[in-house]
Design a protein around this nucleic acid. Structure first.
Length: 283
DNA sequence: CCTGCCGCCTGCGCGC
DNA sequence: TGCGCGCAGGCGGCAG
């Protein structure tokens, strides 16, 4: 579920609440949460005990918590949350992992209803964990190379939305912000990547950065209780969405009713007037 | 290599 | 009420 703005909101919350603190115990309450850590849950816990957490990092939708030269990598999947909680509070049903701290202060709980999210350990991964080496820079980080992005995108033979959702090309964009950015750039989701002009891509990239920046200020999009800040508050970007989840409601730009299409086994929302269907589309 | 499909999970809202 | 179905913010693996 969470895309870049939601993960960034979580990152800054973790920075505020756990950076600089020393990990006490690590409890794995559901083995699936560490399925990518092949050495197992006990090894994962042992590797982290007693270690001090550095500045929390993020690339796209991935987070990592540096511990010395190493790191804990976290991905929230569709329904994951990282919550800072009073350690005395009882565990709720979907808590999959819990970190306590040596100072006895608030703990960190990884809560995940659908268990698509996961945690793993990256030996020597404080700068960039090996597990996420295939994830492209996101458009808000200095390492993002717009030139390279446009060249690689133009070499693809697919639709623009599928390309935006490919985290090895550009990271951080998911279903909500893909639809919102395409709407802002007035591009239909099925536009063929190889037929897009440079000006289209420049406009699209600007739209992505703009919508990300606005959503981060709002603390992300919370449709329900599944996405919240580390302290349990909701983000309020939902009220600023132009098309996502708004089928049948008027386009904020031209008033035409927002259309909903099925694509990649999920929904795509767009304006039928501002984002006309391409003649030679791809999906 | 590139493209696109599938499975992984739980819970909710809806129509019957 | 109850049940089955479709749907939900994502990703990695794998076939072609």
């Amino acid at each position: 579920m969470p895309e870049l703005p939601e993960v960034e909101t979580v990152r800054s919350g973790l920075q505020r609440h756990i950076s600089g603190r020393t990990i006490g115990s690590v409890e794995i309450l559901h083995p699936r949460v560490v399925r990518r850590h092949l050495a197992g849950a006990d090894d994962f816990a042992a590797a982290l005990r007693g270690r001090q957490v550095g500045d929390i990092r993020r690339r796209g939708k991935y987070l990592w918590l540096p511990v010395g030269e190493d790191a804990v990598v976290a991905h929230l999947g569709m329904s994951g949350q990282l919550l800072i909680t009073d350690p005395g509070r009882p565990l709720t049903p979907h808590v999959r992992a819990r970190f306590t701290f040596a100072d006895g202060g608030p703990d960190l709980r990884f809560v995940d209803q659908r268990t698509f999210g996961h945690l793993s350990f990256a030996l020597g991964g404080a700068e960039l964990p090996a597990q996420i080496a295939h994830i492209a820079p996101d458009p808000l980080e200095p390492a993002f190379d717009a030139q390279r992005f446009m060249i690689r995108l133009a070499a693809r033979r697919t639709g623009i939305k599928r390309a935006l959702l490919d985290q090895s090309l550009i990271s951080g964009v998911g279903n909500i912000y893909a639809d919102e950015s395409l709407w802002r750039a007035r591009l239909h989701w099925a536009r063929a990547t190889e037929l897009l002009r440079r000006a289209d891509l420049t406009r699209l990239l600007a739209a992505i950065r703009e919508v990300f920046a606005e959503a981060i200020i709002a603390g992300g999009t919370s449709f329900d209780s599944l996405y919240v800040h580390v302290t349990g508050q909701s983000g309020y970007f939902e009220r600023s969405l132009a098309v996502y989840g708004r089928a049948g409601q008027p386009c904020p730009r031209c008033g035409a009713p927002v259309r909903r299409d099925k694509f990649m086994n999920r929904s795509s929302f767009s304006c039928p007037a501002c984002q006309p269907r391409p003649r030679r589309g791809r999906w």
